[in-house]
Amino acid sequence: MKTLPLVVFALAVLAQWLVPLAAIRQHEKVLVEGQLVRLKCTAPDPYDPLRGRYLAVRPEATEADVDKELKSYRGPGYAMLAIGADGLASVTRLERQRPAEGLFVRVRVRYAHEGKARFDWPFDRYYLNETLAPEADRWLADSLRSTKAVLAEVRVLDGRAVLEDLSLDGKSFREHLKQRLKTAKDP
């Protein structure tokens, strides 16, 4: 057996481990060391053929002030966050360059025009067990009709954001789901 194919194969195997492991390390670090940020959001319930059911998470804030000189810009940007008195985070401004300090998340700027920019958050879905998904769907619809806000709990570190949980009224949405399922079984 020639050596070169074995070496190439070994490198391929190594890469197939390193790529997911690097993603795991990066996201674990954010989950452990990142600051918790709560964003008010809205969400329907779609499906991903490869990864199953998920709740599409859409924070309300999708537009922010930006430098007026940034015209028709599309590409990476940084959303500067501020935590309000109610504990909810809001986007104060968008920067094109990575800020040296402060609480910020790397986002994708869709369009910048006359001092305003629309952007996409780096998270847009929360994956669910397929048996929980239909109930989660109903819970979300009910919650969005109520006056209380559904919050995305996100860990933020060095511009990276990892979605940790969804909550309503201070409780994780999983607890709400368990309660609903219990009530449905035992009315």
Binding site: L11, A12, A15, R125, Y127
Partner: peptide, 30 residues
Amino acid sequence: ALVSQIYHLGGDWPDFLRAWFLLSLPLAWV
């Protein structure tokens, strides 16, 4: 796919596809 599901990574499927086909390419060679 499972790693991105566990960490609720975004829906940029072209990035996922690119990582996938690049990691698969050496298998076509060897």
